Amino acid sequence: MQVLPDPIPEDPQPVRILVVVEGAHDIEFLTRISTLLHSAHPTLPDLAAMECDRELIFVPIGGHPRAWLRRLAPLQLSEFHLYDGEMPPEREQREEFISQINQRIRCRAVLTRKRSLENYLHPQAIQAVADIALEFGDHDCVASEVAQRVFDSRHADYSWKQLTRRIRVRLRNRAKHWLNTSAVEQMTVPLLQERDPDGEIISWLETIGQLAESN
């Protein structure tokens, strides 16, 4: 019996771009919203598909974005950095190192114009998941407001203000998870256009696509 050698595996798809974000919730949001937008605008990249095909690697840095100014440079890959806009004076500090990242070749960094990615959600998408009617501005902490409204709607004899800080943080983190997963999945292109009329998210995806092609 002749023993044939194992077939030589095909060369893996090379990584084309690194997408640097602050945390895992941002990855959940971006993969879902990009899939939605790609279905309507096929020229926009589907980040979930790119990650699955190993063309893209998300890098959740867990805070301290300044420390990542040049840390990934030795990999010689295109980089897209997306950080929460935050409130002054932290926003001004972030704008400073954002400009430094943008001086590097094949690197682009942006701050969200809104406070965080949850602020791009439409209240209807949130209501579809949590059955609460909510209004919020571009710079409100959506996760905190949602967590409080959900808690108060379910506990008539105990208020949010009576909770310890530790419990409130835990409930807020729980809200952040489903906001960036289940609520994003309730979004539609028209709803996103209402929340992002200037096409900010589309511009991020266009930039990612351009950087990936340049690698």
Rank of each mutant, 00 (worst) to 15 (best):
L75F: 10
Q124L: 14
E55I: 12
L179A: 03
D138T: 11
D196M: 10
A183N: 00
L171V: 12
P12Y: 01
R71M: 10
F151N: 08
R94M: 11
R108D: 03
L56W: 14
S159K: 11
N180H: 09
E95G: 15
D198T: 05
L82M: 03
A133T: 08
V169A: 10
I57D: 04
D53V: 09
I201A: 03
Q124S: 15
L205M: 04
A125W: 02
L36C: 00
R54E: 13
E194Q: 02
W204P: 08
H64M: 14
P7D: 13
E194S: 12
D53R: 14
L191V: 06
Q93N: 02
T188V: 10
H139A: 07
D152H: 01
E10R: 08
V3F: 04
I17Y: 02
V3W: 00
L134N: 06
R71E: 15
R54T: 15
H177N: 10
D196F: 05
V21D: 07
P45M: 07
L72I: 12
A24M: 04
E118M: 01
A143K: 06
D198Y: 07
L117W: 01
E79Q: 14
G62M: 03
V15Q: 12
V169C: 05
I132Q: 11
V146P: 07
E118S: 01
V146I: 12
L163D: 10
E96M: 04
R165Y: 03
L111W: 00
Q76I: 01
E118K: 06
T188F: 09
A183L: 01
R94P: 08
A175Q: 00
V20W: 02
S34M: 01
R166A: 14
R170Q: 14
E22N: 09
P7S: 05
Y83D: 10
Q76F: 09
P5N: 00
V110H: 11
P12T: 13
T188P: 00
D26T: 11
S214H: 03
E55K: 08
M187I: 08
I8T: 13
Q127N: 14
V184L: 01
H122D: 13
A175E: 14
G209K: 04
T31R: 14
R170L: 14
Q193L: 15
A109C: 10
L117F: 01
T31M: 03
R106D: 06
T188A: 05
I167N: 11
